[in-house]
Design a binder for these strands. Sequence first.
DNA 1: AGCCGTCATGTAATCGTTTACATTGAGCTT
DNA 2: AAGCTCAATGTAAACGATTACATGACGGCT
Lengths: 360, 360
Amino acid sequence: MEELDPADVTGLSAGEVRAARIGDVARLAGVSTATVSRALANPERVSPEARARVNAAIAQVGYVPNPAARTLRSQKTRMVLVVLPTLDNVFFSKILRGIEEALFEKGYGMIIGDLDGSPDKEARFAAFASAGRVDGALLLNGHLFGQTRDGRGPAMRTSVPLVALCEAIPGASIPQIEVDNRAAARRMTGYLASLGNRRIAYVCGPADNVLERERFRGYRDGLRDAEIAFDPDLVLPGDYTLEAGAVAGQAIAARKVRPGAVFCSNDEMAMGLMRSLASAGIRVPQDISVAGFDDIEFAAMVEPSLTTIRQPRRELGRTAAEVLVDLLEGRPAAPRVRLKTELVVRASTGPAPRKARRPA
Amino acid sequence: MEELDPADVTGLSAGEVRAARIGDVARLAGVSTATVSRALANPERVSPEARARVNAAIAQVGYVPNPAARTLRSQKTRMVLVVLPTLDNVFFSKILRGIEEALFEKGYGMIIGDLDGSPDKEARFAAFASAGRVDGALLLNGHLFGQTRDGRGPAMRTSVPLVALCEAIPGASIPQIEVDNRAAARRMTGYLASLGNRRIAYVCGPADNVLERERFRGYRDGLRDAEIAFDPDLVLPGDYTLEAGAVAGQAIAARKVRPGAVFCSNDEMAMGLMRSLASAGIRVPQDISVAGFDDIEFAAMVEPSLTTIRQPRRELGRTAAEVLVDLLEGRPAAPRVRLKTELVVRASTGPAPRKARRPA
DNA sequence: AGCCGTCATGTAATCGTTTACATTGAGCTT
DNA sequence: AAGCTCAATGTAAACGATTACATGACGGCT
């Protein structure tokens, strides 16, 4: 263990009494503040000699531009607000990481807005954004950000560039980065059918969720492809939590005639469901196949490991951040990006049980 | 599905052409800008009549103070930087949520700094903080934030209030909010011993991690309590990831003489380890008991469910944020807070296997 | 030689607040 | 009635950058 000087343990203490300002640099370099500013923003507009003197002066006094002054004058914050339904969900963490990475590279900071199911917070974040504290926002929720119930956001004044992720907003005129949820769900349903299943249950996410609607549509597409009639009794409610999956699992376990496969709209629910089935003595995949969606880290680690749809989460975040920055810096931005998914077959799915198998 | 006007889908468009300024409010209310400013910051310092007129004017023009101007003048940003090792870890998400919650209530915003193992980023975040973009910082990493290798942070000028969480920094003079990792690990080790185990393995976190050192000490304390000699062969390296746990599990499975219990320094590793053991046909808890640390959500959902130490993660975040705000607003701040942990016994631990049992 | 465009630089206005200091008048004291 | 205090308000100077506009020097062209 290294020795530490408690007085300087933060690394943030000491040094000059007051921070150097642009004027200090200018004086030291023998130029005007305008030249210093230009040397920083447009080096090519300043003579090499002046530039060198300015850089030397900056290094000497350890000048760091004051962001508040910059923002006040230029109206640019180099900050992005990221609005998400909840921080408390592994699904978002990797996306966030992708966002953070990309923003960091471009010199932007990230401010997190955790909605946490509260409309209150939504309004406050919207006000925050439109008060000019950020240059733009990334929306990971499918709602119409900043709209009040009466359809008129009173705090909204300035137009803030937005990019939506994950839960595409239908008809919205803002760029959207998404995964083809519908096609992926269709593919998974088809795969479950190909195992010999005729009774394929579906555990839903929240009904008001745009992304969920897409997945559900994909499920129905897949049934149609396999010429299986849609059966509302095989659709169970859920809300993307482990608990909801557990509840759905209990419901299924309690049934007399069970589905041969259950497609859960996300991995957490699939895991909760498998847990309930195990408690009820139902074997996966011998008695029932279970599939999820998202491919979170734990999906490979549960017993049995979970068949699921892999989404390029980090990529999703990166791309969204890049598109937003393009937008912010006046470059043409892709209006809509679709990223590919992948069907990951693991141990939680297998041939349909005999009795549930499609007759010849 | 509700009908949307695509033109106003963002909720952020339209309205007045330019945002109202304090001068507009002042003119409308028939007072000076100073009075408006005071009515906002210290309502009791203006007459009730003036206050009423100001409030009416604010409502009428939809005035929102410009944060950059405010910050420039007052040197307060009402922003806090949260530095963490990685966003990509469920352990942090609940802490973050607690932080976000508390900060939000106090009217502060949160900026995320994901270190992602890069010293580069650390320096940049430190520069960011000391450039005055935040009022203070919350450290979820055990490092000395902002110190460069040579011990002198060149970008560091101003002293930024800090509060450390999770990985306490020994000898540091900043407030620390922590869990008694050592006592908790001791307790768990004692519990495993009480099941009849003499050979209790330990899977480590990263060696340079302060919190890890505490847990390891607790493990040794626990061995001593049970009068079990410390055996270095029973200590396996790890880094808090699922993969590291899986590797440790393979190592253990390959041994001729196996431990009766394995205490993993976090839940992810315990889950990876159980996965490997299962693949090797070793039964948990009949052949080996496995315990984790943290009690992440998934701990209750794996098969078998995991015995672990519950940490009040959200509370941890909340408390840290509150202490920091106290510090920022000049109130006396608690120099050190210790939160209680809880031993959660689930299905992954059970009586030691016969042959491993302590003689008489 | 005179004119003009270009380049490098400087001067000073500007961004929108907060707040130190000044001013006013009302109410009290002596 | 003069003097004093205090509350309420106003005036104007910061805060620290960016940037429109002005300036001067230089070189090329006619």
